[in-house]
């Protein structure tokens, strides 16, 4: 995009330079367009492939909880239970992860000695590099059995809270176990975003708080948290996006059944992503098309969450 055509005594730019410019501009523009094409292509693929089953569906796709799609005629399936399970698992994971992530970020930025802080930051980033199938193994092989007595205790003492009503699962393979594993998986991204924004709190704001007799915690409450709120929310939303789409770990941990239930400690519930992964190999008839329709819903939810995150982060940075 160079327009240096004013007549000058100096020699004109060499031709090779211009070609390089044009090639680079073309590559950059092409890459930018490619992302739009891919996104539109995925959306179009999902809609086209989902359409046969959606038009033949005899149940209400959005409100039904049954899944009788592996037939050649009159399939009856709905995404309600799956969407509910997806949102529940992700929401619980977010509730568990966000306070811990904010705590880690505050510790790294404002409490830890410099050397410990860098080691800790590196370790948290390392959590993000662990493959999700390993998290799945950890969840089913280590975490689930150890959580069984905890769940028993929860139903016994806090059973009056609907979330914790019994009887608790004896396998530990519940939506809460899945949420805990998801929470560990989304911890790094929320921590990283929070840490970055906490580091950017202007020194003037922090000193203003300290200079009027604030303790370190009061300084954090007065100056750091209000400033960092939008970054934390943005990080949480990105984490939520990951939790919504996570497949492998959830598929391994949950013992699925298609119900809508707030009981975190009982077997039941299933997420869209795990459902697709488990059902796809056995799908016949309208089955594949129906799974793609479920995928379309997941795509829409994730897109909405990510756009929400962008909006919140952008609005926050304008205020600051």
């Amino acid at each position: 995009m160079t327009t240096t055509d004013a007549p000058q005594a100096a020699p004109p730019p060499t031709a090779s330079r211009r070609i390089g410019d044009a090639v680079f501009a073309g590559l950059a523009r092409g890459s930018g367009l490619l992302i739009l094409v891919i996104l539109a292509g995925v959306a179009a693929f999902l809609v086209i492939q989902a359409w046969p089953s959606l038009s033949a569906n005899t149940a209400n796709f959005l409100t039904s909880t049954e899944w009788e799609a592996n037939v050649r005629e009159a399939p009856a399936f709905g995404v309600a239970a799956l969407a509910f399970g997806t949102l529940l698992a992700a929401a619980v994971a977010l509730l568990l992860a966000t306070p811990v992530a904010v705590g880690i970020a505050l510790f790294i930025v404002y409490y830890a000695p410099r050397r410990l802080a860098s080691v800790l930051g590196y370790l948290v980033d390392l959590l993000a590099a662990i493959p999700s199938v390993v998290y799945g193994l950890w969840g089913i092989g280590f975490l689930a059995p150890r959580l069984v007595p905890v769940f028993g205790g929860l139903t016994e003492h806090l059973g009056w809270i609907p979330l914790f009503s019994g009887p608790a699962s004896t396998s530990g393979r519940t939506i809460l176990t899945a949420s805990i594993v998801l929470a560990v998986m989304i911890l790094p991204i929320i921590t990283a975003m929070s840490r970055d924004v906490f580091k950017q709190v202007p020194q003037g704001h922090r000193e203003a708080a300290l200079a009027m007799g604030a303790t370190r915690w009061e300084m954090i409450r007065l100056a750091v948290l209000p400033f960092g709120r939008s970054g934390v929310v943005g990080g949480a939303m990105l984490g939520l996006g990951r939790a919504l789409g996570e497949t492998m770990a959830v598929a391994m941990i949950l013992s699925p059944s298609l119900v809508i239930s707030f009981d975190l400690l009982q077997s039941g519930n299933q997420t869209i992503a795990a459902h697709i992964a488990l059902q796809y190999p056995e799908a016949t008839g309208y089955g594949v098309s129906a799974l793609i329709a479920a995928g379309l819903v997941l795509f829409a939810i994730t897109l909405a969450v990510n756009m929400g995150a962008r909006y919140i982060v952008a609005r926050g940075s304008k205020e600051a």
Binding site: G204, A208, L210, A211, A223, P226, F227
Partner: peptide
């Protein structure tokens, strides 16, 4: 903390808390 509540400070750049 006690000293700072006895000895207040005003800085070069005005620094009111922006969200308050």
């Amino acid at each position: 903390v006690l000293v700072r509540s006895e000895v207040g400070m005003v800085f070069q750049r005005a620094n009111p808390f922006p969200t308050m």
